[in-house]
């Protein structure tokens, strides 16, 4: 039965492929990267077409390097919410926080372009207290930007210790179980979480009971995202939007709308001018 339902969803998805999805429920994808290998393969016009075909209202884009985000933003400023990644190329993921020029790079870009947030960056444990990360927290405060942090709970706690009023979007909800997500949301009123690349909260259009309780307890804190960590995954954006809409339909309307777009739109409104 479960698979019959899934087969119908997949079949319906196949039928609707390529059609404009303007009548689909509003949805913001909060976790997209457009890095150098993606724009080599998928020029901005083609990338924007994928986002529009998926019926996305807005898309949080961060890229290695930021050049990719700027190209997309110029092509569709109504669609793209620029988020500034400290990486100048994809290889910096595990080294950037020890590299002072990463912070200088972020500072220079903030003076030049508009952003809604800084991230997605990868940071774990005590590395969050290093000088490069500290500088990013200061810059986020100064420019009123959110921080899109991929890391463990300890790193998030250290970021909040540096600035208790920081606005942090916890990538993948830290890949921790719902009880730990709940504890973090309870402790930090300005913590949001994206559900990118997680499968534990929903399957076959049904929301897991523990996650449902968490969504109901914190209706203003969650959002969804694809995570295009390789260029091929750009072709997953439409599929991911369909998958997400299917499980959102299992939630009460207002809560589903919050997770689909309202919470992300709230974060995106902190977009600052230089």
């Amino acid at each position: 039965m479960r698979h019959a339902t899934l087969a119908i969803i997949l079949f319906a998805a196949g039928l609707s492929g390529g059609q404009a999805l303007a009548d689909q429920p509003r949805f913001i994808d909060a976790h997209v990267h457009y890095s150098h290998d993606a724009w080599d393969r998928l020029p901005p016009e083609a990338a924007i077409r994928i986002l529009r075909d998926a019926g996305l209202a807005q898309v949080f884009v961060s890229s290695s390097s930021d050049e990719g985000t700027q190209r997309l933003y110029q092509a569709a400023p109504d669609l793209i919410v620029p988020v500034l990644r400290p990486y100048r190329n994809r290889g910096e993921l595990s080294t950037w926080f020890r590299d002072p020029t990463a912070a200088e790079h972020v500072e220079a870009r903030l003076k030049q372009y508009r952003y809604a947030g800084i991230g997605e960056f990868h940071i774990y444990g005590a590395d969050a207290d290093g000088p490069v990360m500290r500088r990013l927290v200061q810059l986020a405060k100064e420019y009123k930007l959110f921080l899109h942090a991929h890391g463990d709970a300890e790193a998030v706690r250290r970021l909040f210790a540096q600035d208790p009023e920081a606005r942090i979007l916890w990538a993948h909800a830290g890949f921790v179980p719902p009880a730990e997500v709940r504890a973090m949301l309870a402790a930090y009123p300005t913590l949001w979480a994206d559900l990118a690349f997680r499968n534990d909260h929903a399957a076959d259009g049904r929301v897991d009971p523990a996650w449902r309780a968490l969504f109901e307890a914190y209706p203003d804190r969650f959002m969804a995202g694809t995570d295009t960590f390789t260029p091929e995954r750009w072709y997953y954006i439409g599929e991911h939007a369909r998958w997400t809409r299917a499980w959102l339909a299992d939630l009460p309307g207002p809560l589903a709308e919050n997770i689909a777009w309202r919470n992300a739109a709230t974060l995106a409104r902190w977009q600052a001018t230089p």
Binding site: H3, L6, F197, R198, N199, A203, D204, D227, T230, E232, R233, Y236, E239, H240
Partner: peptide, 13 residues
């Protein structure tokens, strides 16, 4: 296996 197989994000590619 057919009854229980899970469709996951990481199955893409």
């Amino acid at each position: 296996p057919t009854t229980h197989v899970a469709l996951l994000h990481r199955n893409w590619g």
